[in-house]
């Protein structure tokens, strides 16, 4: 209990500058809308957006559910493709020279322009959105994993070999643990862009999801609903990010942290 209390107090201490800044911005926004008499369809004040959030919570959560499923499926597929590609690139020189440049070049294509093609090829069901999420997320995953797996130093590999390790053992017990911190850095980037990917996919062609709801609400001048959808999307992205940070903290709990090193210097 005391531990939880301490943890929350720590969180408040860490976050209060951000929360305070955010609160000031919201108040300024609210006051601007009222005193400058801005039309509500043009820019609704935060109170109206909050009211819309409460009034349409059923609608918003239903569409958020669709978006979240797309994100999770896309993320899972991306993870599988990313791990396979990165392992291949690190293992095989041929694959590194043939595939890696194409992967990097592929990122110069604006994915937004591919989305309409995907609608033509696979239709407007969930598959097209999953593919857009994959296109957005596999790149940070592959790059971070390749970097991480490559950061293994040759002396450690030699040490494993002199202990009689097989290639599979070296991969599992040395390369993967070495790559983990980089991998999680890539995961965090992927988490954020996965939300963008799902919304873009829905924007181009869908029958549900927060992106679709925003696209529908805009032309009807339901501006407050567009903002409410953005708020929900942010909550989704932050939650996803927080989940990955939690997994990261657990996975890397034995790794030397900067805190540990500082403690040692003091000894």
């Amino acid at each position: 209990m005391r531990l939880i209390h301490n943890y929350m107090w720590q969180a408040v201490k860490n976050w209060y500058p951000a929360i305070l800044t955010f609160a000031v911005l919201i108040v300024v926004w609210e006051l601007c809308v009222w005193f400058l008499e801005i039309q509500r369809w043009l820019l609704p004040p935060p109170t109206i957006i909050f009211q819309e959030l409460i009034d349409s919570i059923g609608l918003l959560t239903r569409h958020a559910g669709i978006t979240v499923v797309e994100i999770i499926m896309g993320f899972a597929v991306s993870l599988m493709i990313g791990v396979a590609l990165a392992s291949g690139i690190v293992w095989s020189r041929a694959m590194e020279r043939s595939v890696y440049p194409i992967i990097i070049a592929s990122q110069t294509i604006p994915i937004f322009t591919l989305a309409p093609l995907l609608i033509i090829w696979v239709g407007t069901d969930i598959m097209s959105k999953v593919i857009v999420v994959v296109l957005f997320t596999f790149f940070p995953l592959v790059v971070s994993l390749v970097t991480g797996l490559r950061s293994v130093d040759s002396e450690s590999v030699d040490m494993f070999r002199t202990l009689g390790a097989t290639n599979a053992q070296i991969f599992r017990k040395l390369m993967i643990p070495t790559a983990l911190p980089n991998f999680f850095a890539g995961m965090k980037v992927a988490a954020v862009v996965s939300v963008i990917g799902a919304v873009i996919g829905e924007w181009v062609g869908a029958s549900g999801g927060l992106g679709w709801l925003m696209k529908l609400s805009g032309p009807q001048f339901q501006t407050a609903r567009v903002f409410a959808a953005i708020v929900v999307l942010s909550v989704v992205a932050i939650t996803l990010f927080a989940v990955i940070v939690a997994i990261e903290k657990w996975s890397l709990r034995k790794y030397p942290s900067t805190l540990n090193q500082a403690k040692n210097l003091g000894e």
């Binding site: 002396e155 450690s156 030699d158 040490m159 070999r161 002199t162 009689g164 390790a165 040395l174 643990p177």
Partner: peptide, 14 residues
């Protein structure tokens, strides 16, 4: 490999 014990210069502890 695996039958000769070899300690390198750096400790290489994981």
């Amino acid at each position: 490999l695996g039958n000769v014990s070899y300690m390198q210069q750096r400790d290489l502890l994981l």
